[in-house]
């Protein structure tokens, strides 16, 4: 099986270890991974500001880079949500539609396509607060959401439960937004920071040593808050845990 790897812009620039972990993990699972070198970004920050004209070129470049692959995999829930649900600044040709439908977030890909049932190389003997970003939770339906009263299901829990030693803590507001929200974190900084503080304290008070997520944008925001507050919490992407990266 061959997939194309999309590494989100901020992961490429600030958190390359997540891209590396994703690549290595897929290869461990027998997947052939290609990385189109001319990729840049999914365009979400521009599109989320409503600027369809400005983002059209970005979307066109994305399609150009990833057309023809059967699967496009990315370690970012928010990018995946954006590509599948919003990518409409360019004409919706068959090629565009295919690229959009074939883009998978890593957890979805592992759970739904590869049906991975073991991570023998991984161990993570720590107390973990799982943060389901709103993009993965309500956008991609990674897990049941508290608003609906539906029976419990969770793709990230299903995967992480197979990692030796990992223990989940129970925060009091597990699916409340952490306040990143893309450009919201800049333009609505006071509320964004307060939401971030509340989120990390909720996990801390529940006993977490680590916060893990499929969305590093949320983690980046929460980590920034924790460091400023002097709260002792560590942050790790789900790709790193599943790949067996040491804590």
């Amino acid at each position: 099986m061959k997939v194309a790897l999309f590494v989100p812009c901020f992961v490429d620039a600030f958190f390359p270890e997540i891209g590396i972990a994703t690549l290595e993990l897929l290869e461990r699972l027998g997947v052939e991974v290609e990385y189109p070198l001319d990729q840049t970004c999914c365009g979400q920050p521009v599109a989320n500001s409503g600027c369809q004209d400005d983002v059209a070129g970005v979307e066109a470049l994305f399609v150009k880079n990833f057309a023809g692959y059967e699967y496009i995999v990315t370690p970012s829930g928010s990018c995946t949500h954006h590509i599948r649900h919003h990518f409409d600044a360019i004409p919706q040709t068959e090629e565009v539609t295919q690229v959009r439908e074939r883009t998978f977030e890593l957890v979805e890909f592992l759970h739904d396509v590869l049906n991975v049932d073991a991570f023998p190389w991984a161990a993570f003997p720590h107390k973990v607060g799982l943060h389901n970003s709103c993009g993965t939770l309500r956008g991609l339906r990674h897990a049941s959401m508290s608003e609906l009263g539906e029976p419990f299901f969770s793709k990230p829990v299903a995967l992480l439960s197979k990692v030796e030693g990992l223990e989940f803590v129970k925060p009091s507001r597990p699916d409340e937004c952490c306040g990143f929200g893309g450009t919201f974190s800049i333009f609505e900084e006071p509320v964004s920071a307060k939401m971030g503080y509340d989120k990390i304290m909720d996990h801390k008070n529940a006993g977490a040593d680590y916060i893990v997520s499929a969305d590093n944008s949320c983690l980046m925001h929460q980590k920034g808050c924790a460091e400023r507050m002097g709260v002792d919490l560590k942050f790790i992407h789900i790709a790193q845990i599943l790949n067996g990266d040491s804590a």
Binding site: V7, F14, I20, G224, C225, E227
Partner: peptide, 17 residues
């Protein structure tokens, strides 16, 4: 604005690229 109440991420040695 990011830096008012949060730390800025550290730049790594290299990009993924």
């Amino acid at each position: 604005a990011w830096g008012k109440q949060r730390e800025v991420p550290i730049t790594p040695d290299h990009t993924f690229h």
